[in-house]
Structures are given as C-alpha cells and as structure tokens.
Amino acid sequence: MRAPERLTLHSKSAELEIQFGTNHYRLSAEFLRVHSPSAEVKGHGPGQATLQTGKQDVNIKRIEAVGNYAVKLVFDDGHDTGIYTWDQLYEFGQHQDRYWQAYLDALEAAGASRMPDDVQVIKLI
C-alpha cells in the first residue's frame, strides 16, 4: 500500500481524515485509540487483547511519521505506542462499521462503557 495522499487531523471533531486515491475516510480518535495496534491493546499473542474502555473523549495530540510506511499517533490520554501502517489505516477505513460494531458488542458483553471513568450518568426520573 502506498502512503495516503493526505492525512488531516481535525482536532475539534477528534477525527483523522485519510485520503487514499479516491477513497476518503474519517476515523474518530476514539476508534483509532481502541483499535491501536500496540501490544498494550492487542497483546503479544492470540487471546491477549485488552478491551479499551472509557475512551469516548480521547483526542489525538500529534501525528509522527514512521519511515515511509506508517504513522505513530500520540493520544491525549498518554497512549503513544501504536504504529499505524498505511495498510492498516486503509483496512480501518474500508471496514470501519464492522470494527466499530464488534467493539461496541465487546463493551456490552463486558458490561463496560465508552464513557471516561470519572463521568457518571445519572438517570433523572
């Protein structure tokens, strides 16, 4: 996979816009954070992934080039160890809905939330 023609960080909307030829994708910082290819998230082998919770408000602070094949995203929650290859970003763009639904299903099965730990939802009667 060649490098994208354009990467644009939209800080206000917390999205990364990626253009591969005629394919345009907008991936949320939360999506990219919870699907980080880092060992912290994916583990070191099958079955070692850690479900990321409470990342709804995360944003990307900085993008750093990694050679000619990838970028490192630095998130405002301190996570900075994932290297996102062009192939992976393209795959995320192509199948974003499927990956996102699988994540939401995993959260539900774990009884976990996207909301940050320090946020409480109070149901008003």
Rank of each mutant, 00 (worst) to 15 (best):
D97K: 03
S13E: 00
Q120A: 09
K61M: 12
E17G: 11
L73V: 13
L107M: 08
D77W: 01
Y90F: 13
W100E: 15
E91T: 15
L124S: 08
Y99D: 08
S36V: 04
N59G: 12
Q94D: 08
Q52E: 02
L104K: 06
I60G: 02
Q101C: 02
A14Y: 05
A29V: 05
A102K: 14
A39G: 09
G43E: 09
D117I: 01
K12Y: 05
L124P: 03
L9S: 11
R62M: 10
T22H: 10
T81D: 10
S113H: 02
Q88P: 02
V74A: 00
Y84I: 05
K72R: 15
Q48M: 00
K42L: 02
D80L: 13
W100H: 13
L107T: 03
V74C: 10
Q52G: 01
E91H: 14
G93S: 04
E40W: 07
T85N: 11
Y69W: 12
S28Q: 00
D76S: 05
L27N: 11
L27P: 12
K72V: 07
E108R: 09
L124I: 04
R62I: 07
T53L: 05
Y90N: 14
L16N: 06
Q56V: 02
V66R: 04
R2P: 13
W86D: 07
T8K: 06
P46G: 04
I18K: 09
E17K: 14
W100V: 02
E108F: 07
D76R: 07
A106Y: 09
S13L: 09
L27C: 07
P46F: 07
A65T: 07
W86Q: 02
L9F: 07
A102V: 12
D117A: 13
T85D: 09
I60F: 10
E91R: 15
K61E: 15
Q120L: 02
K72T: 14
E5V: 06
I63P: 12
E15N: 13
A49W: 00
A112V: 03
Q96V: 03
S113V: 07
L32I: 12
A110T: 01
L89I: 13
A102G: 10
S28Y: 10
V41L: 06
L104F: 03
A29L: 04
A29W: 05
K123L: 04
R2H: 06
E17H: 15
G67C: 03
E17I: 05
Q101M: 04
A14M: 01
F75I: 15
Q88R: 15
A110F: 04
H44F: 11
Y25P: 03
A106E: 08
G93I: 10
R2V: 03
P4H: 14
E91K: 15
R2W: 07
Q19A: 13
E15T: 10
F75Y: 15
Y84T: 14
E91P: 07
D77S: 08
L73G: 10
R114H: 09
K123H: 03
G43V: 05
T22G: 11
R2Y: 05
Q19G: 05
R33H: 01
L124C: 02
A106W: 07
T8M: 01
T81E: 08
I60H: 09
V41G: 00
D77Q: 14
G45D: 03
V58I: 15
Y84V: 10
A3S: 15
I18L: 14
G111H: 11
A3C: 01
Y99S: 05
K42T: 03
N23M: 11
K123Y: 05
I83C: 09
E40K: 15
K72S: 08
